[in-house]
Amino acid sequence: MMETIIEIFSYPFMIRAVIVGVLVSLCAALLGTSLVLKRYSMIGDGLSHVGFAALAVAYVTNLAPLSVAIPVCVLAAFLLLRMNENSKIKGDAATALMCSGALAIGIMAVSLTTGMNTDVCNYMFGSILAMSKSDVTISIILSVVVIILFVAFYPRIFAVTFDETFAKATGTKSDLYNMIIALLTAMTVVLGMRMMGTLLISSLIVFPSLSAMRICKKFITVIITSVLISILCFCAGIYVSYVYSTPTGASIVIANIIVFITFSLIEKMRERVTQL
């Protein structure tokens, strides 16, 4: 096992993948708890599809992928939140609209020029080979931003997540903090989707915090546990993917599923024990 790990780190592309992956897992888990509790679990899905469309268009028009995808996703995140508030079209319906709409636009853009090739496939299903040097730099910068903002606004994020009405009534600018959460989510999704793939990135947001909620009872411990779970599952996933040549994104998700089931069983057993 040790030898395999050393071998993994002898490839520059693997080192890049691990750096980006750990950072993205960390950010996704941090934000995931808030998103799940605010009933925004699907926002990751919506954003990743928009991100796919943006990447596809960037690919077709030969623009730098991230410089198109990040602003577009941030915009989409704001739109999704707005729709949640105004609620003429309810949040989940809005997300569904955005998912399929964006996917259609992306596929159209691609088919007009090259057709489905490996690059596009990578966007759909993810690839660890996709990380370039500049991706690593951007990932590091963005994830540092996400972490700093999250820590700096932690008490406010808790207040807005727990009881938005009370927060608003007592003078917390809840709209602003919702925006910040959306902004951070958009950045995380764009960074993560190229490794995890459009179809799997939202699992990175949802699974670790759901698993942590099985066994933790405090907000802060849920967040810390979900970060640990997320990073651990990423490492396990990438290891398995390397050794057995399985797709990275799927391997990571499977690791998360295993943790989720284990924690659910622990929760059930605890309930049994306290009932006795």
Binding site: P155, F158, F162, F166, C216, K218, F219, T221
Partner: peptide, 22 residues
């Protein structure tokens, strides 16, 4: 009435402390 979700993991202390945010 508060629409706090039934499954929200938060300790009593965390909740009370959030009142000091303002």
């Amino acid at each position: 009435q508060t629409q706090i979700q039934k499954d929200f993991p938060a300790s009593v202390y965390e909740v009370v402390l959030s009142g000091r945010l303002n």
